[in-house]
Design a binder for these strands. Sequence first.
DNA 1: ATTTTCACACTTGTATGGTAGTATGGTAGT
DNA 2: ACTACCATACTACCATACAAGTGTGAAAAT
Lengths: 225, 225
Amino acid sequence: MKITLRPQPVSTRDAVYLQLRDQILKLELPPGTPLSENETSLLFQVSRTPVRESFLRLAQEGLVQVLPQRGTFVSLIDTELVEEGRFMREQLEKSVIRLACEQFPEEALASLELNLLQQEASMMKQDDKHMFELDEAFHGIIFEGCRKMNTWSVIQQMNVHLNRSRMLRLADDHNWQNLFEQHRRMAEAIKSGEADLAEQLMKEHLSLNITDQAVLKEKYPSYYK
Amino acid sequence: MKITLRPQPVSTRDAVYLQLRDQILKLELPPGTPLSENETSLLFQVSRTPVRESFLRLAQEGLVQVLPQRGTFVSLIDTELVEEGRFMREQLEKSVIRLACEQFPEEALASLELNLLQQEASMMKQDDKHMFELDEAFHGIIFEGCRKMNTWSVIQQMNVHLNRSRMLRLADDHNWQNLFEQHRRMAEAIKSGEADLAEQLMKEHLSLNITDQAVLKEKYPSYYK
DNA sequence: ATTTTCACACTTGTATGGTAGTATGGTAGT
DNA sequence: ACTACCATACTACCATACAAGTGTGAAAAT
């Protein structure tokens, strides 16, 4: 008896959605850019339906704004949304790392340490892209160990706005060495169950991401609300 | 010069969405119920398009599950999702009420006190529905005073799952008197800036909402995942 | 009696035509 | 020169037709 796994064939709708989302996050479609169902459907060589449904999804996530009978536009960056996204992430990650200090599965701890080794390797190779993924994964492992994967999903969802803002800075001012060191110390704190220390480390870690919104807003006024 | 405010005329899509959402949350459409685009469009006397778009939105919010070429079903209640929703709300509300203790606008404090008066009146009249709305509003005012409205939106979004679970209990075991008392004490703590006390009150207040999932799951096994 | 096959009645996914509302640029009237 | 008007070319919204995958039950084969 063979269980036939149904591999979700990426639908046209999802393909269009992912493509648009990617372009918006990379600022290839800058804030304010008008999008048109017709135009986009011609560009992707598909009908208007999947395009339209992609727009609706993007609108729900706040990445585009749909004005009935007027047009659809890439959303301007909302500073409040960015700051609150950071705020929520900080509060939730601080709470979760406290949980991790109280109870954390052995295999998750092993995953963390493996991840740290990979981070070191990627730093050597100056593989920024991979380093970024490992950073995300590190935090994800902590949530997974605390059985809070849905919380992690929510955080990632909220952070698309923050990420778009981050993209405005030239990407390479990431101080990976510093981030790695913080990761390492957080893992140790979890291992030894030092909740207060862990929370403090996480707080500092996440505040590194605070980009000076005011500066960016002045530099790219047309991108901001 | 008159600014012509454009009152978003409720689109067909939104009308269908709101109606379905309401029915799902009230368990008039119990978890597991099959929904059909065709059937629903006939029921609402509209075409498949707005119905389909409503389904997509509901799917994104986790209220329905769409299986391509097979069907669309009202989502089973996910215990993990419910518990994590409660967890996130607790963490965020605790942090925000701390903020409120440090800095809270005068007019927001006035709104809180007006709200408390209205709560008392509603309790007298045993107006449960209004009391529920005032409860929501009370928390909303705190977020508004801290300029964290987006955070509040996220919480409300996450809590649809918790609310569906809550709906399973007979609605009238709400101990409004107790809730009111907690609200009153929280408002006082904000006024006097007692952050630790406020946080503790909020924690207790929200833990009242912890329904014993296991019991409900046993009583309504077909509703749960 | 049991198994296999297959037509058919569903499902959602995609394409397309028509409708109503909106922005714009040219034109006629002042 | 300036304003009011209006044709026109957009827009998103909705309705409908077609395509493609899935499950079911009856009929045929074993």
